[in-house]
Computed example of a mutant assay.
Amino acid sequence: MKISRIMSLGAVGAIAALTLTGCATNEAGAGTGDSTPTSSIAGMLEATGASSQEAAQQSWVAAFQTANPDATINYTSTGSGTGRENFLSGSSNFVGSDRAFNADEVAAGGFGSCATDEIVEVPVYISPVAVAFNLEGIDELNLDGATLAGIFAGDITEWDDPAIAEQNPDVDLPDQAIVPVHRADASGTQETFTSYLAAVAPDVWTDEPSDEWPLSTGEAGDGTSGVVNAITNGVGYIGFADASQAQGLGQVAIEVEGEYVPYSAEAASALVAASPLEEGRSDHDLAFAVDPASAPAGSYPIALVSYLIGCVEYEDPEIASLVKAYFEFVASAAGQDVAASAAGSAPISDDLREKVNAAIGAIVTE
């Protein structure tokens, strides 16, 4: 995280501190005239998961630990797939993931981090997945879903291809090879992107949505940073990444209902707001069913809904209490503002926050 982002936490971190200490504090030095509030939240958590959440997690952890100096949250950006594996193995107290466990995985259970097979999954990070490219002298391009699918399927291989040129008549496109970049690791961001391609261009993108890249074409990068580095260092390259980490690269505005929509937190939020929660899940398992093909006008159709995943019951009640406190902060208005400032994400709505807080409330702390 850049130093400027750390510095930007000051004002919002103060709000977060007030929020946290207001609900869980003791009055230090009672009877001595010292009424400085001190947090009773303490302990250490080990967590892994989504690299898309990295900037947000750094900001959340910084604000939370400032408000609660006896608490330590160690979040390691490993990618969503590795995070979920670690949660199953029991090596992570909670994880960040760019997709929820699917219904079959939830039914199978075996969550080694938990005392039971009941889990809490809450959406706390909504962000556009930017389609970013590196072409000299070109900062923006308009592309529809079928063209993007053709590029990443390896069917469209030159930047001056007619399919691209027709949508960008005022752009001087180079006679240059296209190098599409995907994730080398299992990634929820990748599943979000392939879900978009499969939904809007099924005749071109014939593979099922997956967190693992299904093709042998293109170049692979490890994690979000690997994809961004490959594009940054490769002229003619194009790839997809959480928008918080795609700054400074050329950006694609994507066709929706006849208009080209550039990515923004607001446009991504509009897609999620139009999406229902998946049916058949418990009240503490809040997984969205996002359909890019049904994106309303003005929305950005490749929106990442990223989750915090924890246990309803932990073996250690102190771990449970700390997980619950951290989740509550992340979902709070102050926590969402911290992430929006650091990562450009879209804060969850008040209505969704009510559902998220109810789900977090299922965590057993006694």
Rank of each mutant, 00 (worst) to 15 (best):
L9D: 04
L9E: 15
V12L: 12
I15Q: 13
A16D: 07
G31C: 05
G33V: 02
S39H: 05
G49F: 02
E54P: 00
A55C: 08
A56V: 02
V61L: 04
F64I: 07
N68I: 00
T72Q: 05
N74A: 13
T82G: 10
T82N: 07
R84C: 00
R84V: 02
E85Q: 13
L88S: 11
S92M: 10
R99Q: 11
V106H: 06
G109Q: 05
S113G: 04
D117A: 00
D117G: 05
E118Q: 14
I119F: 09
V122L: 07
P128N: 01
V131A: 03
E140Y: 03
E140G: 00
T147S: 06
A149D: 03
G150S: 15
I151N: 01
E158G: 06
P162V: 06
V179T: 11
P202G: 12
W205F: 06
T206I: 04
D207I: 07
D211F: 03
D211T: 13
P214I: 00
P214E: 02
G223N: 10
T224S: 09
G226C: 04
G226N: 05
N233F: 14
Y237P: 01
I238V: 15
G239R: 01
D242L: 03
A243C: 00
E257G: 03
E257F: 09
P262V: 10
A268T: 06
V272K: 05
D283S: 12
L286C: 02
L286F: 03
A287D: 12
G298T: 05
Y307E: 08
A320Y: 01
V323H: 11
K324D: 11
K324W: 05
Y326P: 00
G344K: 06
I348E: 11
I348A: 14
L352W: 07
A359E: 08
G361Y: 00
A362S: 15
E366M: 09
